[in-house]
Amino acid sequence: MKMNNRLKIGIVILTIMVLGSFLLPLFHDADPTKQGTFPKNLPPSLAHVLGTNSLGQDLFWWLVYAVRNSLILGVSVSIFTTLIAGTVGLTAGYIGGGSDRVIMTLTDVIIAIPVFPILIVLATLVRGQTSFLIVSVILIFFGWAWGARRVRSMALSLREREFINVAKFSGSTTLKIVFREVFPYVFAFMVVDFINAILWVINTEAALAVIGLSNVEIPTLGSIVFWALNYNALFIGQYMWIVAPVVATVVLFLGLFLTSTGYNQMYATRRGHS
């Protein structure tokens, strides 16, 4: 199995982001959200790599914690959505019949409902105390449908293949066939969907935070932008406050996207040759 360039670049970016955001906080135990820790509006220097903002917080450390928290949220929600997508998709696609029709209608409905407005309502209802738990539950509820669709169509095409028939005639149970024969094929798709789900989760939480409807006290890639907009960072010439999270978000998302498409490509070529 040869890695392509996309996958290589993607993995390098992700490794740097993950190691950086998880290891660096070990050397810095101060709370980055504490206001007035440092003088306000300092330009970038050796002591403050990205400078400080109008609240007297060090931007670099804010960003490090933001990337870490966004990643934690993204990965933990995506684990659930991917598991649900896999189970539901395999059930619908391989077992089929009535369960397939019901599940497909359900996924189509969930895909057709725009998530963002629903999140706005929820955030308003629990005003001021939007916890990550509530946001996560909603994201899980709406996040599995895309993956399930893809796994289902994959399982559907596998059902007709020769080796499945061989397994069936040699007396394997349905459960065994699904896990031993179908699952390995679907697995690569699920990895891709897992990474795409991380992207979607981080993005949706950030979008909610930017307009102040997530928990903006916790540093995430969205809440840092919320505070910058709230303090008119651009108007007072504090460009670093906006530019830094924008660059970090773009790099992280590119890393995730390159990894998912690169991995997909690698598996596509391998399947083609086997």
């Binding site: 996309r6 979008a207 924008v246 978000t249 996207f257």
Partner: peptide, 15 residues
Amino acid sequence: GVALYPIPYYIVALV
């Protein structure tokens, strides 16, 4: 395409 696709709406708007 690769550079544009994964970028969220709010980031484009900010830029």
